[in-house]
């Protein structure tokens, strides 16, 4: 489950914000310094998490620390998923 979420978010960011060019990008890449994370992409990322994982972030959780890189996003998604994965609509 965790690997699937990680791969999904990774792919989404590469496709949407890096024109599909994966070179140099990994799950520790700082999205803010990479010019990817701003107010607009933050909205887009939170919408993506909602649509794909039914994870809704509280306004207080939408901050650079939680969205700094793919690993951080995966952590917040896992932390917010309903227990036992019930209701988590993994993309398939």
């Amino acid at each position: 489950m965790q690997e699937r979420i990680r791969a999904s978010i990774h792919q989404y960011i590469v496709t949407t914000w890096l024109s599909g060019d994966e070179r140099g990008f990994d799950d520790d890449t700082d999205l803010l310094a990479a010019g990817i994370l701003d107010s607009f992409s933050t909205l887009s990322i939170t919408a993506y998490l909602d649509e794909n994982f039914h994870v809704q972030l509280d306004p207080s959780e939408i901050n650079p620390a939680n969205l700094r890189n793919v690993n951080a996003i995966v952590r917040i998604v896992l932390a917010k998923l309903p227990a036992n994965g019930q209701g988590a609509a993994s993309p398939s």
Partner: peptide
């Protein structure tokens, strides 16, 4: 070797977020 990520990083160091190209094609 120039990657889209490198280009975006470069822009992020010089431009406000709304001026960083969303789409970069090489």
């Amino acid at each position: 070797e120039l990657s889209v990520l490198a280009i975006k990083r470069h822009c992020a160091g010089r431009l406000p977020p709304y001026m960083i190209p969303s789409e970069v094609r090489i």
